[in-house]
Design a binder for these strands. Structure first.
Length: 970
RNA sequence: GCGGAGGUAGCCAAGUGGUCAACGGCGGUGGGCUCAAGAUCCACUCUCAAAGGAGUUCGCGGGUUCGAAUCCCUCCCUCCGCACCA
């Protein structure tokens, strides 16, 4: 917001003017007919709040490309709709209902972007207790925001994923998947709120966006104690071979309970959490942890081990009972150490009766890892200076280090009996089976960290019975998906590997949830809602027909109808009879679908590769025939601000709604593509924006002046400078066109905007005025504006109008490349070299000078160069030999011997010979630029030739070489 | 750990076999303009030399090549994804 704004006012007014005209005239709503159709899609926004400049990056790339394609004669359809499915909107709604101040403040700020009246803001936010109001409010506001960016979207095809039409469409999709046997049922652990009695997502968890909670799959290991099992929970079951004792928290409450018919001893908290995991739990008695102390239980391996107290044990984690493996677990080592040096436990427990047990404990070494001895936990505790089990931070840090090291590189020792020599990471499943064979293992889920639901309830792991899954692991489905992927073009191509990776790894995935907005799952009497990532994968197809069916009675939109329009199954007349829909509607929908599908191009952010985009491809592969498969996916990286990720909590988000006030649409559009290529992060920095703004204004003011009058009359000859700028403009057309086809829009704007602006300014300093210049600039601008139009359409449109052009530049034809005057390009390169040499020399001599003499080399030197270039092997020896054969060159053998070494060297550089000029071209260039150079250096510039008997006091002329004339400054 | 991307001058960042001491921007220095500031323009901004020159540079270390920022190998470091979350 540091950007000074007033000088942009004129641009902003222009932007509003053209947006009104474009959308008023509906120029971005294509006819469903004609050659070269181009169907482009981008994600429909999730309407839980306003869009920010980060989202804008994606749409900006899409828009620039859409505009480029349109100007290149394509019939472009780029529609937009609104995603409202899922729990986030619901979560916000319930926060507002609970009058949660942070959420209310946040949403008031959002609404203030659009409303001036504070009482109205209040009223709108209050209405958000109904989630539909949130969805609808932001859907209505994001569209105008996109218009303010000038995005060339067809707004006539909007829908939301909560519309009845959409629900029918999704039911058809899931009906198909069901028929194909791709939906399966199963049990599945989820995060669950104990108050809401519902599954929770990241958005439901307090601080869930910062502190991620995941589900850990623990192995419960049963230790016999009389008729009961003392159950521990471990992520590393192999350590059962090195267990020396168990730890309990003496102050905590434990229970003896029937769990699925067995008697378990676990903490009270654990018992209640187990109930959520489809277990039958009946508590028999409660007691304090102290009463377990000193008991000896029997490990699954038959070892007798004592139960001891430890203060680090959390009764609310796992089962509240910990398997002690002092050799490999830093906490255990520290706790054991505390006990052995009595008094440092920090617990009010009488250890006297446990003394002999404690003394008897010896750590058991189990895992071999490089760089450590038998007891890595001990080594790490010493290295990090752990004093007691209460050094929680250090212990948790070194536990992580050690567990990772042991898990990925550790090898089990003979202590592990039949698992001796196995890699730790490979052995987990076998250990579980081994324990199971002794009825000593049981699966227990626990959250990775403790969390609360926004409603205040505890988040625990629950097992949902009868969850529906999409079976992405189905071999036939996978095969089809890979087939599609092989044909799919991906830009930037580097992301293909991530798709392959995702495709290989995709397996069963839950596709319904207990709550949220969306489409009810059609094959269950229970209440299941198809979740957001599962209902948003083939909606592109709906865009092609929505205008025909929007007004239809949704009940008539049966599977038979969708089968016909999307798959061509059956006959229109039959469908008409079955559904009661007008046959014209059915036929028109089918026709439009056939015209627009496939989705030629989908552009989105890389975050979607491992989910949305892969699902998009999977579903298309199985539901649609090959000709309807997507053709191209392009991707962009994310956007950060001053090196920091934008997020609500950091308060560094720039909403699109503020763009027209703080910046300008064209400015933001230009910045977003000029800062970084698709495959790198855009870092939004005000300084850089400021720089781009200055250039943009410079372009605007200069070009505005250049097109002030009508096209000037000029029929005279064109000077070198004019021919060069025309050729350079055409070369720019060719370079940008190529860049656009490769989606290198950064290159596109660098070439078309920044560099060309410099070139035009240089041209203006080469030729000061007159009709030739005015006329040439006019012709340059005519081409230039059309190249810039996709990026800065508003300014381009305005200047186009001021040039008295008819029609929108947005719909004009992209300029074509031709090579008229192309010979001036190497000449200009030569001139630049000479100018830079003169500058160098001038800078080096540091004294007042008046004149510059440029000496072009003698003709024989050009001959020598031409001869040398013709050699297969231009070595010094060969050059000399060949020169000797030439009667003309033979006269200069002494000089040639001097030049040959450098010549041989420079000929190794292929490029030098490619743009070689002859004497004629070089002298023409220098003479044409003489006045320009004189002005530039403020000195008389003289162009002479080496043989002229010319003024040459320093005897420099003899150093002249082709492409490198001699220079004397006096 | 697996998979992916990347490490380039004070900072950001282009460049993927020779036109590379390496585009561009920021920052810095000097200068023009101005009463002055801002804005703007010009020059310089690795080291040395100072008539267009030389040397040493592109994470570390090796290798291939007439020639490497660019290709190959070892290592070090950073970022992203690894699921039920949009």
């Amino acid at each position: 917001m540091q950007v000074a704004t007033s000088e942009l006012d004129e641009i902003r007014a222009i932007e509003r003017k053209w947006q009104d005209r474009w959308f008023g005239d509906k120029i971005f709503e294509p006819k469903s007919a004609g050659p070269k159709k181009y169907f482009l899609t981008t994600p429909y926004p999730y309407t839980s709040g306003p869009q920010h400049i980060g989202h804008t990056r994606t749409y900006n790339v899409a828009d620039i490309h859409a505009r480029f394609m349109r100007m290149n004669g394509h019939n472009v359809l780029w529609p937009m709709a609104w995603h409202i499915t899922g729990t986030p909107i619901l979560a916000i709604s319930s926060c507002i209902e609970r009058r949660e101040s942070a959420t209310i403040a946040l949403y008031k700020n959002y609404v203030r972007l659009y409303e001036d009246d504070e009482s109205r803001v209040e009223q709108i936010v209050n209405s958000f207790v109904d989630p539909w109001n949130i969805a609808n409010y932001f859907a209505e506001k994001i569209a105008p925001d996109f218009k303010k960016m000038g995005f060339s979207i067809d707004w006539s095809r909007q829908f939301t994923t909560g519309d009845l039409v959409y629900n029918q469409f999704i039911r058809w999709q899931y009906g198909k998947l069901m028929e194909l046997g791709l939906i399966v049922r199963g049990q599945h652990p989820v995060l669950f709120c104990t108050i809401d009695q519902n599954a929770v997502g990241e958005d439901d968890i307090a601080g869930g966006d910062v502190k991620k909670i995941s589900i850990d799959d623990y192995v419960g290991i049963k230790f016999s104690l009389d008729e009961a099992y003392v159950v521990t929970a471990s992520l590393r079951p192999e350590t059962v071979f090195a267990v020396t004792n168990l730890w309990v928290a003496p102050d905590a409450t434990y229970v003896k309970a029937y769990v699925d018919g067995e008697t378990w001893i676990v903490s009270l908290e654990s018992a209640s959490k187990l109930r959520y995991q489809q277990r039958e739990v009946t508590i028999i008695e409660e007691f304090q942890g102290t009463s377990l102390l000193g008991a000896h239980c029997v490990s699954p391996l038959g070892r007798k081990i004592p139960i001891l107290p430890a203060s680090f044990v959390d009764s609310d984690h796992g089962t509240g009972i910990v398997m002690s493996v002092p050799a490999h677990a830093p906490y255990d080592w520290a706790a054991l150490n505390d006990l052995k040096q009595q008094g440092s436990t920090g617990l009010d427990v009488d250890l006297s009766s446990l003394r002999s047990d404690i003394e008897a404990i010896q750590p058991i070494s189990l895992v071999k890892i490089d760089g450590y001895g038998d007891f890595p936990a001990a080594e790490l505790c010493e290295r990090y200076g752990v004093r007691s089990q209460r050094d929680d931070e250090t212990l948790s840090h070194i536990t992580n280090i050690l567990y990772r090291e042991e898990f990925y590189t550790g090898i089990l020792k003979e202590t592990a009996e039949q698992f001796d020599g196995r890699l730790v990471r490979d052995v987990k499943q076998d250990i579980v089976e081994f324990l199971n064979s002794r009825n000593a293992a049981s699966s227990i889920y626990e959250t990775s960290t403790k969390g609360l639901c926004r409603c205040g309830g505890r988040v625990v792991v629950a097992i949902e019975p009868g969850q529906y899954f999409l079976n992405y692991g189905d071999p036939h489905w996978k095969e089809k998906a890979f087939e599609l992927l092989d044909q799919l073009e991906i830009v930037p191509e580097i992301y293909r590997a991530q798709f392959v990776q995702t495709f290989e790894w995709l397996d069963q995935r839950p596709c319904v949830r207990r709550r949220g907005l969306g489409t009810e799952f059609p094959f269950s009497t229970e209440h299941w809602i198809i979740e957001p990532l599962s209902d948003s994968v083939i909606y592109m197809a709906l865009y092609t027909v929505i205008q025909h069916i929007r007004e239809c009675d949704p009940k008539r939109l049966t599977p038979a109808f969708f089968d016909y329009i999307f798959l061509g199954k059956g006959h229109a007349t039959d469908v008409c009879q079955q559904t009661g829909l007008p046959e014209t509607v059915i036929r028109a929908a089918r026709k439009d679908f056939i015209y627009w599908y496939p989705n030629d191009h989908r552009h989105t952010a890389i975050a979607h590769i491992s989910n949305h985009l892969s699902f998009f491809l999977f579903h298309h592969a199985i539901l649609f025939p090959e000709p309807c498969w997507p053709k191209l996916v392009t991707l962009n990286e994310l956007l950060v601000r001053d090196g920091v990720k934008m997020s609500k909590s950091k308060g560094n988000v720039i909403p699109i709604a503020t763009v027209p006030e703080v910046y300008s649409a064209d400015l933001v559009r230009l910045c977003l593509v000029s800062i970084a290529d698709l495959n790198s992060t855009v870092d939004w920095r005000e300084k850089e924006v400021e720089m781009v703004k200055k250039r943009l204004l410079r372009f605007w003011h200069a070009t505005k002046r250049d097109v002030e009058a009508a096209r000037p009359e000029y029929n005279g000859p064109l000077s070198f400078a004019s021919r060069w700028i025309l050729a350079a403009t055409k070369a720019m057309v060719s370079k940008t066109s190529e860049a656009a086809h490769q989606f290198s829009y950064r290159k596109y704007v660098t070439e078309a905007f920044f560099e060309h602006l410099n070139r035009v300014e240089e041209y203006k300093s080469m030729i000061l005025g007159g009709n030739e210049r005015r006329r040439t600039l006019w012709d340059v601008i005519d081409i230039w504006l059309r190249v810039l139009a996709p990026v800065v359409p508003h300014i381009a449109e305005e200047l186009w109008e001021r040039m008295l052009k008819s029609g929108y530049i947005s719909l004009a034809e992209f300029p074509l490349y031709d090579d008229l005057y192309a010979e001036t390009l190497p000449q200009k390169g030569f001139l630049d070299g000479v100018i830079s040499d003169i500058s160098n020399i001038q800078a080096a001599i540091k004294r007042e000078t008046e004149s510059v003499f440029i000496y072009l080399p003698a003709q024989w030197k050009y001959t020598l160069y031409a001869v040398a270039r013709g050699l297969d092997d231009p070595s010094i020896k060969n050059i000399m030999a060949r020169a000797k054969e030439d009667p003309f060159l033979r006269m200069y053998m002494k000089e040639i011997a001097h030049i040959a070494p450098d010549l041989a060297k420079s000929l190794a550089h292929e490029a030098l010979s490619a743009d070689a000029l002859d004497f004629q071209a070089e002298s023409e260039t220098l003479l044409a630029a003489k006045d320009y150079m004189t002005r530039k250096f403020g000195k008389h510039v003289h162009v002479c030739a080496e043989n002229d008997n010319v003024y040459d006091p320093a005897n420099r002329a003899r150093r002249a070489l082709p492409m490198k004339p001699a220079i004397y400054v006096e």
